[in-house]
C-alpha cells in the first residue's frame, strides 16, 4: 500500500503554490524514509495482515464463526474434534472455533476504528481550523468545550450513552467518534496558529483570497501531517475502546464475534480453559501494537517534534 498522501514539509512550504497535491517525488522520498524504520515497517505489515484477515475472513477462517457444536466444546488448542477437524487455537464453551472467531472479530474492531477516527478526525480538523484561524470568541468557545469534554471520564460517558441508546454498530461509532475530537482539534489549532502568520498565507490574503479559500487551499494541506499522525495513533486507542465496550457487553452484539466479547466469555472459564481468554486478547494486543509502531514511525518521519 502506498502511504497516504502527505503535505509538503513545513520548511519548504513557503512557495506560493502551497496547497497543491504533493508531488510524487515527495511521496517517494517520504516512503523511503519511513521504510528505513524497521519497526514502522513491521507495524505496517501487521496492520496489513489484520486488514486482509478482516476482508477475506470468509475464505481464510475455514470455519463458520457462529457454528456451534456442543459435543466439541472447550477443546484444547491444537486438538482435533470428533470429525477429525483441527482447531489450532481450540474451541470455546459452545464448540465454536476460536481462530475463526478471532479472524471474524477483526471486522467490528477495524470497522469501528476506521469509522470513528473518520468522524472525530473531520470534526477535530474543522474545529481546529476555525479555532486557530479566527481566534477570538470562536476559539474561546471551542477550547472551553474541549475542556468540558476532557473533564468527563471517557469510558464512563460512552457506557452511559450506549446504555441509554442501546448497543449497535452505528451508535458505538458515533459515540466514540463524537467524543474524541479534542486531540485533533488541539493539534490542528496549534499548527494553524503558526501557519496563519506565514508569508504564503499573507501573500494569499494580499492577492485577495477569501478566508474560506485560504483555510482550505493553503492552511489545511499544511496542517494535515500532524493530523495524520494523531489519526493513526488514535486508531489504536479506539480499537481498545471498542473491545472494552464489547467486553462489558455494550459493543456489537452476539452472535457477531468480537474480541472483547470473546474475552468476556473466556473470563468465565478462566480456571478450566485458559485459551478462551488468551488468544482474543493477543489479537487485540498485536493489532494495537502494530498500529502504535506504525504511528510512532510516522510521527518520527513526518513531525519529530510533535508530542503525543
Amino acid at each position: 500500500m502506498d502511504p497516504a498522501p502527505i503535505s509538503v514539509p513545513l520548511s519548504r512550504a513557503v512557495d506560493l503554490s502551497a496547497g497543491r497535491a504533493p508531488a510524487p517525488r515527495e511521496w517517494a522520498l517520504f516512503a523511503r524514509r519511513l521504510a528505513r524504520r524497521r519497526t514502522a515497517l513491521f507495524g505496517l505489515v501487521v496492520v496489513m495482515i489484520v486488514v486482509v484477515a478482516a476482508l477475506g475472513a470468509s475464505w481464510i477462517a475455514g470455519y463458520d464463526p457462529t457454528e456451534q457444536d456442543i459435543t466439541n466444546r472447550l477443546r484444547a488448542p491444537g486438538s482435533q474434534d470428533a470429525a477429525g477437524r483441527a482447531h489450532l487455537f481450540g474451541t470455546d464453551h459452545l464448540g465454536r472455533d476460536i481462530l475463526a472467531r478471532m479472524i471474524f472479530g477483526a471486522r467490528p474492531a477495524l470497522m469501528v476504528g476506521f469509522a470513528a477516527v473518520a468522524i472525530s478526525g473531520v470534526l477535530g480538523m474543522m474545529v481546529g481550523l476555525l479555532s486557530g484561524y479566527f481566534g477570538g470568541w470562536i476559539d474561546d468557545v471551542f477550547m472551553r468545550l474541549a475542556d468540558v469534554q476532557l473533564a468527563f471520564p471517557f469510558i464512563l460517558l460512552a457506557i452511559a450513552v450506549i446504555g441509554v441508546l442501546g448497543p449497535s454498530l452505528p451508535v458505538i461509532i458515533v459515540v466514540i467518534g463524537v467524543s474524541s475530537w479534542v486531540v485533533y482539534a488541539r493539534v490542528v489549532r496549534g499548527a494553524v496558529l503558526s501557519l496563519r502568520e506565514r508569508e504564503f498565507v499573507q501573500a494569499a490574503h494580499a492577492l485577495g483570497s477569501r478566508d474560506g479559500r485560504v483555510l482550505l487551499r493553503h492552511i489545511l494541506p499544511n496542517a494535515f501531517t500532524p493530523w495524520l499522525v494523531v489519526a493513526t495513533l488514535d486508531m489504536a486507542r479506539v480499537i481498545v475502546i471498542e473491545s472494552a465496550l464489547s467486553f462489558l457487553g455494550l459493543g456489537v452484539q452476539p452472535p457477531t464475534p468480537t474480541w472483547g466479547g470473546m474475552l468476556a466469555d473466556g473470563r468465565v472459564y478462566i480456571s478450566t480453559a485458559w485459551w478462551l481468554a488468551t488468544f482474543p486478547g493477543l489479537a487485540i494486543l498485536v493489532t494495537v501494537l502494530g498500529i502504535n509502531l506504525f504511528g510512532d514511525g510516522l510521527r518520527d518521519t513526518l513531525d519529530p517534534r510533535l508530542k503525543l
Binding site: 478462566i270 494486543l285 494495537v288
Partner: peptide
C-alpha cells in the same frame, strides 16, 4: 513500555488472574 501501551487493561487483568490466582 510499548507493549504496555498496546495491551488492553481487561486482558491484562484476566491474564494476571490466570497466572497469580488460578
Amino acid at each position: 513500555a510499548l507493549l504496555g501501551q498496546s495491551m488492553p487493561t481487561f486482558w491484562l487483568g484476566i491474564m494476571l488472574i490466570l497466572v497469580f490466582s488460578v
